[in-house]
C-alpha cells in the first residue's frame, strides 16, 4: 500500500516538472502585402503561467495574437495551442480560449446581458451563474444597452465575455486601458484567482509596470521581432532607475560618472542619468551634495528598449 502511494506521488511530481507548452509559436511571420507585421516570432507559453507580451504600439503584439486566433493567417511559420495547430484546429482550440480584444466593439443595439448570453451560446457550458458572478465582481450593470456604456464599462463587458466560459487559456490584448485603478485591481485579482486554478494567461501590454506586477515571464517585441524572452525577476535585476537632480551650486561634471551610471546629462543645475546597480551606493553619492530637488523614476518602456537595443548592438 505504502509503495503504491509513493509511486503515485513520484509520478505527480514528475508531471509538475514537465513543462507543458500551452502556446508554441515557431518562426511566425506575417506581412500585410509588403508592410511588416511580425518577423520570425518564436516563443512558448507554459501551462499555468502568466506570460507578458510587451512592446510599443505597432510592434506586432496584436498581429501575433490575431494569428493565434486565426483571424489572420501567417505568411510563414506556425503556432500551436494545446499542442494543436491553431489554424487547422481553430474552432476546436478556441473552445478553451477566452479572448479580450484591445478595442472593444459590440453589437450596439444589444443589452449587456443579451450580448453575454450570445457569447455564452457558442460554448457548450452553462454559464449564466458565472455571468452574474463576474458582473458583480466587476460592478457591471447587465441591463444597460452597450451603446450607452463608457469605454471602461465596455471593457468590463469584454472581460466578462472573455471569462464566462471558464477557459483554460486567457488571451488579453491591452486589457487595462479605460479601467480605473480600482477596477484594474479587481481585474488583476480575478486573473490571479483564475491563474491559481491553473489557467494560463497571455497578457499583452505596453505598460511595463502592470506586466511586472502580474507576470512570471515576459517576451519583449519591437518592430515585429522578439527582442528578448525573460523572467520578470531577471528583468527586475537588470532594471534601471532614472535619476533627475536639481542642485544649488554647480558641480564637477564627472561627479556622477561612476559605475552603473549611463546616459549622464549635465545641463546647468540639472543632472539626469540612468542608474543600474546597488541603490545604496548611488543614494550615498547623492546625499553628499546640496540638493534642491530630486526625482527617481522607473524608466519608461522606451528606455528599457534602448537598453535592450544597446545590448543587441
Amino acid at each position: 500500500m505504502q509503495k503504491i502511494i509513493l509511486i503515485e506521488i513520484g509520478n505527480w511530481s514528475e508531471k509538475e516538472n514537465l513543462n507543458v507548452n500551452v502556446i508554441e509559436i515557431k518562426n511566425l511571420t506575417k506581412y500585410y502585402g509588403k508592410a511588416r507585421g511580425i518577423t520570425d516570432v518564436s516563443f512558448n507559453v507554459e501551462e499555468g503561467e502568466i506570460f507578458g507580451f510587451i512592446g510599443p504600439n505597432g510592434a506586432g503584439k496584436s498581429t501575433t495574437i490575431r494569428t493565434l486566433l486565426s483571424l489572420i493567417y501567417p505568411t510563414s511559420g506556425s503556432a500551436k495551442i494545446f499542442g494543436k495547430d491553431c489554424i487547422k484546429y481553430g474552432p476546436e482550440v478556441k473552445k478553451e480560449i477566452g479572448y479580450l480584444p484591445s478595442e472593444i466593439f459590440y453589437y450596439d443595439k444589444m443589452k449587456v446581458i443579451d450580448l453575454l448570453k450570445y457569447s455564452a451560446s457558442f460554448y457548450k457550458k452553462e454559464s449564466i451563474k458565472r455571468i452574474h458572478e463576474l458582473a458583480e465582481i466587476m460592478n457591471l450593470d447587465l441591463n444597460k444597452k452597450i451603446d450607452d456604456l463608457s469605454l471602461g464599462n465596455k471593457k468590463k463587458v469584454g472581460i466578462v465575455q472573455g471569462l464566462l466560459h471558464e477557459p483554460k487559456l486567457i488571451i488579453l490584448d491591452e486589457p487595462t486601458s479605460g479601467l480605473d485603478p480600482l477596477m484594474q485591481q479587481k481585474f488583476f485579482d480575478l486573473l490571479l484567482a483564475e491563474n491559481k486554478k491553473g489557467v494560463t494567461i497571455l497578457f499583452s501590454s505596453h505598460i511595463l509596470s502592470e506586466v511586472q506586477r502580474l507576470c512570471n515571464r515576459v517576451a519583449i517585441i519591437k518592430e515585429g521581432r522578439i527582442v528578448k524572452v525573460e523572467k520578470i525577476s531577471t528583468l527586475k535585476e537588470t532594471n534601471h532607475k532614472k535619476f533627475k537632480i536639481e542642485i544649488g551650486a554647480e558641480l564637477e561634471k564627472n561627479y556622477f560618472n561612476i559605475a552603473g551610471v549611463s546616459d549622464l546629462v549635465v545641463k546647468d543645475k540639472m543632472i539626469s542619468f540612468l542608474y543600474r546597480g546597488n541603490i545604496n551606493s548611488i543614494i550615498k553619492k547623492v546625499s553628499e551634495i546640496e540638493l534642491i530637488n530630486l526625482w527617481v523614476e522607473e524608466p519608461n518602456l522606451e528606455e528599457i528598449f534602448m537598453h535592450y537595443y544597446e545590448k543587441e548592438a
Binding site: 481553430g90 474552432p91 478556441k94 479572448y99 480584444p101 466593439f105 453589437y107 457569447s119
Partner: peptide, 17 residues
C-alpha cells in the same frame, strides 16, 4: 465594418459555419 469580427471569430466556430 462594425468591428465585431474580433468577437465573433474568436468563438469556437469555423468561418464556414
Amino acid at each position: 465594418r462594425e468591428k465585431t469580427a474580433e468577437f465573433l471569430f474568436a468563438k469556437p466556430v469555423s468561418r464556414n459555419r
